[in-house]
Simulated assay, not measured.
Amino acid sequence: MKLAINGFGRIGRTILRQILALPADSNIEVALINDIAPLETCAYLFQYDSTFGPYVGTVDVDETGLIVDERSIPMTQSSDLAQVDLTGVDVLLDCTGIARSSDVARRGLQAGAAKVLISGPSPAAEVTIVVGANEDSLGDARIVSNASCTTNALAPLLKQVDQIAGVHSAHMTTIHCYTNSQPMVDAPRGDLARSRAGALSMVPTTSSATHLIDVVLPHLAGRISGAAVRVPTASVSAIDLVATLEQEMGLEDFQAELHRAADTSPVLGWATMPLVSTDLRARPESLVIAGTETRLAGQNQVRVFGWYDNEWGFSARMLDVARLMSRV
Score class of each variant (00 low, 15 high):
residue 4 A to P: 09
residue 5 I to C: 04
residue 9 G to P: 05
residue 15 I to Q: 00
residue 16 L to H: 07
residue 16 L to F: 10
residue 19 I to R: 00
residue 19 I to W: 01
residue 23 P to N: 04
residue 26 S to F: 04
residue 26 S to L: 02
residue 27 N to D: 12
residue 30 V to Q: 01
residue 36 I to E: 04
residue 37 A to E: 13
residue 44 Y to N: 07
residue 48 Y to W: 11
residue 50 S to W: 11
residue 50 S to Q: 14
residue 57 G to C: 10
residue 60 D to E: 15
residue 63 E to F: 15
residue 63 E to H: 15
residue 64 T to Y: 13
residue 67 I to E: 03
residue 69 D to Y: 05
residue 70 E to Q: 15
residue 74 P to T: 11
residue 74 P to D: 08
residue 75 M to Y: 08
residue 79 S to Q: 09
residue 82 A to W: 06
residue 85 D to A: 11
residue 87 T to L: 04
residue 92 L to W: 03
residue 96 T to R: 08
residue 96 T to A: 04
residue 105 A to E: 05
residue 107 R to A: 10
residue 115 K to W: 07
residue 115 K to I: 07
residue 121 P to E: 08
residue 122 S to K: 05
residue 130 V to L: 04
residue 132 G to N: 03
residue 133 A to V: 11
residue 137 S to N: 15
residue 138 L to W: 14
residue 140 D to K: 14
residue 145 S to H: 11
residue 151 T to F: 08
residue 151 T to I: 02
residue 152 N to Q: 12
residue 153 A to W: 02
residue 155 A to S: 14
residue 157 L to W: 05
residue 157 L to A: 07
residue 164 I to Q: 03
residue 168 H to E: 13
residue 172 M to S: 15
residue 178 Y to R: 06
residue 193 A to P: 06
residue 193 A to C: 12
residue 196 R to I: 08
residue 196 R to H: 13
residue 200 L to C: 10
residue 200 L to A: 14
residue 202 M to Q: 12
residue 209 A to V: 07
residue 210 T to I: 10
residue 218 P to F: 10
residue 219 H to G: 01
residue 219 H to A: 02
residue 222 G to F: 10
residue 225 S to G: 15
residue 226 G to Y: 06
residue 228 A to W: 00
residue 229 V to T: 14
residue 233 T to K: 03
residue 236 V to H: 02
residue 239 I to M: 07
residue 243 A to I: 04
residue 243 A to F: 02
residue 245 L to T: 01
residue 246 E to N: 09
residue 246 E to D: 10
residue 247 Q to L: 03
residue 250 G to Q: 02
residue 255 Q to M: 08
residue 256 A to C: 05
residue 257 E to G: 01
residue 261 A to I: 05
residue 261 A to E: 06
residue 263 D to R: 12
residue 265 S to H: 02
residue 265 S to W: 02
residue 265 S to D: 08
residue 266 P to Y: 07
residue 269 G to K: 00
residue 274 P to N: 14
residue 277 S to E: 14
residue 281 R to G: 05
residue 282 A to L: 02
residue 283 R to P: 00
residue 284 P to K: 02
residue 288 V to K: 00
residue 289 I to N: 01
residue 295 R to Q: 13
residue 301 Q to C: 15
residue 303 R to W: 15
residue 305 F to G: 03
residue 307 W to N: 09
residue 313 G to N: 03
residue 314 F to S: 00
residue 315 S to M: 06
residue 316 A to K: 03
residue 320 D to Q: 11
residue 321 V to Q: 00
residue 325 M to A: 02
residue 328 V to A: 11
